[in-house]
Amino acid sequence: MDTPPSGTFEDLLQIVEGLDTPAGYKAELIRGKIVASPWSKLRYKKVMKSLRLQLVPHAPERHDVDVAPFLFTFPGSERGYGPDLHVADESSFDAEGRHADGAALSLAAELTADSTKDVDRIDEMETYGRVVPVYLLLDMGIGEINVLSEPSPKGYRSRTDVPFGRPVRIPVPFDFELDTSGFLLPEAEAGTPWPRRPTPHPPTRVRQFAGGPFFCRPRLRVSGQSGQSGQSGLSGGLAYAGSPEADACLL
Rank of each mutant, 00 (worst) to 15 (best):
G7N: 08
T8I: 13
L13G: 10
E17D: 09
G18E: 02
G18F: 01
D20Y: 02
P22G: 13
A23L: 12
Y25K: 14
K26E: 15
A27T: 15
I30Y: 06
G32E: 07
K33F: 08
V35Q: 11
K41L: 12
R43P: 03
K46V: 14
M48T: 08
K49H: 12
S50L: 09
S50A: 15
L51W: 03
Q54Y: 14
L55H: 13
V56H: 07
V56P: 06
P57E: 09
P60S: 13
R62M: 09
R62Y: 07
H63T: 14
V67T: 08
A68W: 02
A68Q: 09
P69K: 00
F70G: 03
F74P: 05
F74E: 03
F74C: 05
G76S: 07
E78D: 00
R79I: 01
R79F: 13
D84A: 09
H86V: 07
D89T: 02
D89M: 03
E90W: 08
S91A: 15
R98D: 14
A103K: 00
L105M: 08
L105A: 00
A108E: 04
T112Q: 01
T116K: 08
T116V: 10
D118R: 11
V119C: 04
D120I: 03
D120V: 02
R121E: 09
E124Q: 11
E124T: 05
T127P: 01
G129Y: 00
V134C: 02
Y135N: 00
L136N: 05
L136E: 01
L138V: 11
D139N: 13
G141V: 01
I142L: 04
G143Y: 02
S149C: 05
S149Q: 01
E150V: 01
P151W: 02
P153R: 03
P153C: 05
K154Q: 15
Y156I: 06
Y156S: 05
S158W: 06
S158E: 04
T160W: 01
V162F: 00
V162P: 01
P163G: 06
G165S: 07
P167T: 09
P167M: 07
P167K: 07
R169I: 13
I170R: 04
P171A: 11
V172Q: 13
P173D: 07
F174D: 03
D175P: 06
D175K: 14
E177K: 04
L178T: 04
L178W: 12
D179F: 06
T180H: 08
T180G: 12
S181N: 08
S181V: 08
L185Q: 14
L185M: 15
T192D: 11
T192H: 00
P193K: 01
P195A: 02
P195G: 02
P198M: 08
H201S: 15
R205K: 15
V206M: 04
R207K: 13
G211Y: 09
G211N: 12
F214W: 10
F214E: 15
F215I: 11
R217F: 08
P218Y: 12
R219M: 15
L220P: 07
G224W: 14
S226W: 14
G227P: 05
Q228P: 00
S232Q: 08
G236Q: 11
G237Q: 06
G237H: 02
G242W: 08
P244F: 02
P244A: 12
E245G: 11
E245T: 10
D247P: 01
A248L: 14
L251T: 10
